[in-house]
Simulated scan of single mutants.
Amino acid sequence: MTRTDHDHPGGGVSLYTHGGKVNTVAPDATATPHRDASIKMFYVNGWEDPEDDARHIGWLRELYEDLYADTGGAPAAADGAFINYPDTDLADPARNTGAPWQTLYFGDNHRRLQRVKAKWDPRDVFHHALSIRRA
């Protein structure tokens, strides 16, 4: 955040309060188990020219990996990640040498979600890079 070689003012980290009624829901009542958090962090960067993709994505990756250097380049399994802020780098073993992305996003709910996926979407019609895969 204090680097002088990145000249784009659109990059940053946002902190959002989280909790209250959200924390009264059981961790296994929905797909997302993160029910004891008081703050969510959101990493963001924006630009217009596709030629700048590598530079701006690189800056954000370096920030993220610096923040999580002690836990393999990603949050610790106990802290997790919020699926509404998807990050395919968490599924890349070269960038995340810590907890598997499924654990970060879904915790102990992952196996149950795989069963739901098998029942309701057995042909994997609804999918993306971080979607639940059948067991």
Rank of each mutant, 00 (worst) to 15 (best):
D53M: 14
D53T: 14
D53S: 15
A54T: 15
A54H: 10
A54S: 15
R55F: 04
R55Q: 07
R55L: 08
H56N: 13
H56Q: 12
I57K: 13
I57E: 12
I57Q: 11
G58N: 13
W59K: 02
W59T: 05
W59I: 04
L60Q: 06
R61E: 13
R61H: 10
R61Y: 07
E62N: 15
L63Q: 06
L63T: 07
L63V: 08
Y64N: 01
E65T: 15
E65L: 10
D66M: 03
D66G: 03
L67F: 03
L67Q: 03
L67K: 04
Y68Q: 02
Y68T: 03
A69D: 07
A69E: 12
A69T: 09
D70A: 10
D70Q: 10
D70I: 07
D70N: 07
T71S: 11
T71N: 06
T71M: 05
T71I: 07
G72F: 02
G73F: 05
G73E: 05
G73N: 03
G73Q: 06
G73T: 06
A74G: 01
A74P: 01
P75G: 01
P75F: 07
P75W: 09
P75S: 00
A76S: 13
A76M: 10
A76Y: 05
A77E: 02
A77K: 01
A77R: 04
D79P: 01
D79S: 05
D79V: 06
G80A: 00
G80K: 05
A81Q: 00
F82M: 04
I83S: 12
N84D: 12
N84W: 11
Y85E: 12
Y85W: 14
P86C: 08
D87T: 03
D87S: 04
L90A: 08
L90F: 15
A91F: 02
A91D: 11
P93H: 02
P93S: 01
P93K: 00
A94R: 12
A94G: 07
R95I: 04
T97E: 10
T97Q: 15
T97N: 03
T97V: 04
T97W: 10
A99R: 00
A99K: 00
P100N: 09
W101P: 01
W101M: 05
Q102M: 14
Q102H: 14
T103N: 10
T103W: 07
T103L: 11
T103A: 13
L104P: 04
Y105M: 04
Y105T: 01
Y105R: 01
F106K: 00
F106R: 01
G107Q: 11
G107L: 11
G107W: 09
G107E: 11
D108I: 06
D108N: 05
N109Q: 11
N109K: 11
N109A: 12
N109W: 14
H110G: 11
R112K: 15
R112G: 12
Q114D: 14
Q114F: 15
